[in-house]
C-alpha cells in the first residue's frame, strides 16, 4: 500500500491523480499507524514550509516519518521538510537530508552560494558518519545543457518564484532510470535545497545550481513536481514505485 500523507499542505490531489494514472493504489492518510505500515510513503507539499512543518508536528507525524525504512518520497515542500532547515519561516526540518533550504535571490548577480568554496564550507558541517560520499559531484563543471544556446539575452534572468520547466542533470539514482540528463521537469518554488552529498540531480536557476533531487538511504526527494511533469514525471514516479 502507498501512503500519501494528508496533512493539509497542498497538492495531495495532483499527486493522487498522477498515481491513479499509473494504476497505483494509494491511501490518503494522516494516521501514524497506517503510514508506518505502508510499503511506500509519499510526502507531498506546496506552500509555506514553516506552516507545513507545524502541520506535520500537530499531527504527530515527525517521528513516524523519521523512522520509515520503506522507500519514501518528498515532493517540493515535502522534500524541504526532510532537510535540516529552511530559511522560509525559518523552520527546522526533519534532518534526513543533510542540507539547508535557502531563498532564491532575484537577479542573483552577486550570489555565489554555489561556489566550490561555499560547498566545501557547507560540507565541513556534515557529520562524519553521513559524509561518506565525496563532493566531486558538486565541484564538477556546472550542468550546461542549455548554455550552448546563449541567446538574445545578455544577462541571466532569474525570476522568483522559479516557475516553469527546467532541465535536470547529474542524474544519479534508480529514481532516474532511463531518464536522460537534460530532461525537463516542472518546478514551482522560491526556496531551494543547497547542493550536498545527498544530491542526486541538479538544476540551475540563474546563477544558482541547486539540488533538484536528493536521496539518503530509503528517503528520496524531488524539488520539482513529477506529478505535473508530463511523461518524464510519470516515468520518475514509476521508478519510485518500482524501488
Amino acid at each position: 500500500m502507498i501512503a500519501l500523507i494528508d496533512y493539509d499542505a497542498g497538492n495531495i490531489r495532483s499527486v493522487g491523480n498522477a498515481l491513479a494514472r499509473l494504476g497505483a493504489e494509494y491511501e490518503l492518510t494522516a494516521d501514524p499507524a497506517r503510514i508506518a505500515a505502508a510499503d511506500k510513503v509519499i510526502l507531498p507539499g506546496v506552500g509555506n514550509a514553516a506552516k507545513a512543518m507545524e502541520s506535520l508536528q500537530e499531527r504527530g507525524l515527525c517521528e513516524v516519518i523519521r523512522n520509515l525504512r520503506v522507500p519514501a518520497l518528498g515532493i517540493c515542500v515535502g522534500l524541504q521538510l526532510l532537510c535540516r532547515s529552511s530559511e522560509e519561516g525559518p523552520t527546522e526540518g526533519l534532518g534526513i537530508f543533510d542540507t539547508r533550504v535557502r531563498r532564491f535571490l532575484f537577479g542573483m548577480a552577486g550570489d555565489n552560494s554555489c561556489s566550490a568554496k561555499n560547498i566545501a564550507d557547507a560540507t565541513q558541517e556534515l557529520s562524519p558518519a553521513k559524509n561518506t560520499k565525496t563532493i566531486t559531484k558538486a565541484s564538477q563543471e556546472p550542468f550546461t545543457a542549455n548554455n550552448s544556446k546563449a541567446n538574445w539575452s545578455a544577462g541571466v534572468e532569474a525570476k522568483v518564484p522559479h516557475m516553469g520547466w527546467n532541465s535536470i542533470g547529474n542524474l544519479e539514482s534508480k529514481l532516474f532510470k532511463e531518464i536522460p540528463g537534460g530532461s525537463f521537469v516542472y518546478f514551482v518554488h522560491s526556496y531551494y535545497p543547497e547542493l550536498c552529498p545527498d544530491t542526486i540531480a541538479t538544476c540551475r536557476h540563474g546563477e544558482t545550481l541547486f539540488s533538484a533531487a536528493l536521496r539518503w538511504e530509503n528517503f528520496y526527494g524531488t524539488q520539482f513536481h513529477p506529478e505535473k511533469s508530463g511523461s518524464v514525471g510519470a516515468a520518475i514516479l514509476k521508478n519510485f514505485l518500482a524501488l
Binding site: 490531489r13 495532483s14 491523480n17 498522477a18 491513479a20 494514472r21 516542472y186 514551482v188 513536481h225 506529478e227 505535473k228 511533469s229 508530463g230 511523461s231 514525471g233 510519470a234
Partner: peptide
C-alpha cells in the same frame, strides 16, 4: 482535467 492531464 486534473485527473487526466499531467501538465500544470
Amino acid at each position: 482535467i486534473a485527473r487526466e492531464i499531467d501538465i500544470p
